[in-house]
Computed example of a mutant assay.
Amino acid sequence: MVQILDGKAVAKALREQLTTELAASGLKPTLAVVFDPADDGSRLYVGMKQKAAAKVGIETRDIAVSADATTESVEKIVAKLNQDASVSGILIQAPLPKEVDDAAIFAKVAPEKDVDGLGVTNQGRLFANEAGNYPVAATPKGVMTLLNYYDIDPRGKRAVVVGRSQLFGRPMAALLLNADATVTVAHRYTKEETLNNLLAEADIIVVGVGIPGFIKASQIKEGAVVIDVGMNLVDGKACGDVEAAAADKAGWLTPVPGGVGPMTIATLLESTMEAALEQAK
């Protein structure tokens, strides 16, 4: 019988720990969130982050950019936040309006305030497996926290990451590789035969391509650990990138919702607290 990786419960425990640590530190971190208010998903996520942050003692400052924003205009916003000593962390909630180069904006965030780890400096540290404490993209870091909580050690295991985005796939692969897994990256354009062969041998599968039911139960090895990062709406109901029937074959599985989503937010708050502690030294 499949065992559930309960991200909701683990995130709750992490938030409680953060609340205690922040209270003891005497710090009052502030997270600035730059987002496009016209994007429904961004508005939803920003609202969820506001509520979660308030509960642990982190203030949020939401900065909505206009529909006609340009890369240059958003870079100026980020530059001001970089210089603002009252701001502990900066989150760029992608996607931004169409005329804005998201990657260019990620790169402009000061490394010490880059709490989602998407700037070139922090991504370089991750891919170099540099020692020390630096921010890592919240969703992949949340996945690793979830695996650790359930004592699932990637060392020596075959892992397949399906997705190659800067926000998820690339940092996810790096974290698993740094944890001594043997890692292959696939994506939506990987040939079906190739993907089938990869998944048939994978001990750990992490998928985030934004396509409902992209991964089928028939493709999964019996007993595999399956992490579903997808969040889609089909007929008004939330579903992931892995079909529901995978529960009959996987050994471990994240639910959607209630799996990776809560971990992403809790991990972002953890990175914000860690940034505030580093800046206070």
Rank of each mutant, 00 (worst) to 15 (best):
K157T: 15
M263T: 10
V46F: 02
I205H: 05
M263S: 12
V136H: 06
N133M: 05
K49E: 12
V109W: 04
I204V: 07
P171I: 05
I58M: 08
E243L: 10
S73I: 06
A79I: 05
D36K: 03
P171K: 02
I4H: 01
A103W: 00
G47R: 01
Q279L: 14
V136R: 13
L81C: 05
V143R: 03
A67P: 09
T182H: 05
K108D: 14
T71D: 13
K281C: 10
Q219I: 08
A217M: 07
V256C: 13
E274I: 07
F168A: 14
D180S: 14
T264W: 00
S25L: 07
G119M: 02
E278T: 13
Y45C: 00
F214G: 13
G236Q: 02
D102M: 01
G261E: 10
G213R: 01
A181L: 07
A275M: 08
T70Y: 01
R170H: 14
G41R: 01
N197M: 06
I152T: 12
K141T: 05
A69C: 13
G213K: 03
D203H: 06
V226Y: 02
Y134P: 15
V162G: 10
V229C: 15
G119S: 07
K28Q: 13
I90E: 01
I204E: 12
L126V: 11
E72W: 00
G41I: 03
P135R: 00
V100A: 12
M263V: 11
I105S: 08
Y149G: 00
P255H: 00
S66N: 14
G26T: 10
A245P: 15
V225D: 13
P37C: 09
A202E: 08
T272P: 14
A53H: 03
E201G: 02
G132F: 01
G259L: 05
T145S: 11
L175S: 09
M231F: 12
V209T: 10
S165N: 04
V87H: 00
